[in-house]
Design a binder for these strands. Structure first.
Lengths: 349, 349
DNA sequence: CTGAAAGCGCTTACAG
DNA sequence: CTGAAAGCGCTTACAG
């Protein structure tokens, strides 16, 4: 590495041509004699030439770069799926991704956005790890931005989020479809937080019940905290009811996991005695449970893709209201849903 | 955005100074009259000036950039910890990280390395998601590189990996310390794979037994596959032994999770009847188990940090053998380890 | 303390 | 088809 990297001028001199010609073969432009091209390519090969992207960037004004900024501290296993999705789409368009984990510090975030802009990013995706309202650095307005799994109160940025309501509805429908009528629901957070992930999934649950003509019974729903302990505790609580549920819809897979332990303690078998649907599709949990858990998948990869795609294709700067997009949470069937146990079914002779 | 971004020349003209002066205030150089500085800063502020990093890069030759490249497909929850660790160290040194998920395609990987080099990265960290031997793109030799959680057969790159043997030893010691002498062990992969993560942890187990004067009993060790099912099956198998173990060391948390279900089926309580130590510290699993799982943490964040730190501080290009570093896997105490049950303890009166 | 000039490594018209 | 020149937005000596 003691020797300086060759530039386009070195190639030109060595090949006995002008730099313009070298540039042309570099960019695979037409109008270059085959012999010239071969000669230049030979010299490049021999000298181990690599173009310097920064020079190209400065001349063309195109950085071929997107920024990916995460909100808050992210110890969730979701971050990587988001990045992968975003990156997959970026690669198709020959762009690279500058990833910054904002670390929950506002100053770091502001600084990160500045750095990204100075690097000339063509757009920024700002991603949260769960669906909630965010306050973003002001400078984000200087560059095309899309919000992932979050939104601002003003709705002044394009954003893509999971369709929580629909997810909750479809989870519940799956259970109704098997004949269940007493369906316990544990929300994934306190309703007072107003998090769409908590409020929306419950709303979907109610909508499904309504549509099926099943009366909503407040006794069957509990406000959980998303962790295994909530699932364990509320599964026991609900099962202690006089008319206990035959099926459960948990707002997170972790709660479903806690519930499995409660079921085991009571000698209840999934799905023979009790059916369960989770939410999140954390496959390290869902796959590992016995039986494996049927759950609603959060569309992280798809949101990442959508975000970059939007940056790539949507004209920026027009005055229309920025697009707000909801992506479905597809059900992932594993083995935790079955028909109502015979003793509980109403239709029997 | 219709208006062009102001350059250093626009600022100079507007402020009635030379571009050199603008550059000086931009870089907070000394030898600028306070009045001049204020005037220039005022103009920058007014025009919303942002330096263009690419221009700076091209002049100074410093990209302030590192590449982060992942090996193979990565659906593991570990990737993000690695990135976070690397990024935390990079930010301290005012560097940014270009992250590429290589997606398991060799051509994509080669291309990625080329792109990174053309972007002028000051170094590349190449990260695997579990400890194994890798074949890396040849071009990695053109730039300072450190391998994370992997190594090449030739050991021609610096690398940082978990100390699997020590982790296995300390996990086992923890159990021995509570008086356990019959300790079941399920490896996290087939030994035939030769993966250090599988072979090393078992080696540590044997070393701990040796040191404690406990004879190795091949009957107590099984080759698992890392998944919940292996844990479930082998826990049952081992418990069916005439002289069953009172404690278990599983090569992954997922296997420990499977085992918990086996214990539940047999009415065995953790840690009263049986103790268990896992490996990986996948906290979404370890925290959610009842009781929470004591396990060995994989030092992902620390490896990420170490990698970038090494790139930052180690001179590159000298002929000494590249450094190979092992980082400890600290034990994370939760609630799954207890003393040998009284009925099994030898020392009783 | 400050300005004018050269130059980093490219691309892009413009002549020929 | 090809070369010479200008210029992208900076930084860095060099004079003054």
């Amino acid at each position: 590495m003691a020797v300086k990297k060759p530039s386009i001028h070195d190639i030109a001199r060595e090949a006995g041509v002008g730099v313009g010609t070298v540039s042309r073969v570099l960019n695979e432009r037409p109008n270059v004699a085959e012999a010239t091209r071969a000669k230049v390519e030979g010299v490049m090969e021999r000298l181990g030439y690599r173009p310097t992207f920064a020079a190209r960037h400065i001349r063309t004004g195109r950085s071929q770069l997107f920024g990916f900024l995460t909100d808050q501290v992210t110890t969730t296993p979701f971050a990587h799926d988001l990045i992968k999705g975003a990156q997959a789409r970026a690669r198709q368009a020959d762009r690279m991704l500058m990833v910054i984990d904002a670390d929950g510090d506002d100053r770091v975030r502001e600084q990160a956005v500045s750095n990204l802009i100075e690097r000339g990013v063509e757009g920024i995706v700002y991603a949260a790890m769960f669906h909630h309202e965010v306050h973003v650095p002001q400078a984000l307005h200087e560059v095309p931005t899309v919000l992932v799994d979050c939104f601002t109160l003003e709705r002044d940025f394009a954003s893509v989020v999971p369709d929580e309501v629909r997810g909750g509805r479809e989870a519940t429908e799956r259970l109704l479809e098997e004949g269940h009528r007493r369906i316990g629901m544990v929300t994934n957070d306190l309703l007072a937080t107003k998090y769409p992930a908590a409020v929306g999934r419950l709303e979907g649950y109610r909508a499904a019940l309504d549509a099926a003509g099943v009366a909503y019974d407040a006794e069957l729903v509990r406000e959980g905290l998303g962790n295994a302990d909530s699932g364990y505790r509320f599964a026991h609580d609900l099962l202690d009811l006089d008319d206990p549920p035959t099926a459960f819809f948990f707002g997170t897979d972790r709660m479903a996991m806690g519930a499995y332990f409660a079921f085991a303690e009571r000698g209840l078998r999934v799905p023979d005695d009790v059916s369960v649907v989770g939410f999140d599709d954390q496959h390290y949990i869902a796959d590992a449970l016995r039986p494996a858990l049927t759950t609603m998948a959060l569309p992280h990869s798809a949101m990442g893709r959508w975000a970059v795609d939007h940056l790539l294709t949507a004209p920026w700067g027009d005055d229309r209201l920025p697009l707000q997009r909801r992506l479905p949470c597809p059900i992932v069937e594993r083995g935790s849903v079955g028909p109502v146990p015979a003793s509980d079914a109403g239709e029997e002779p």
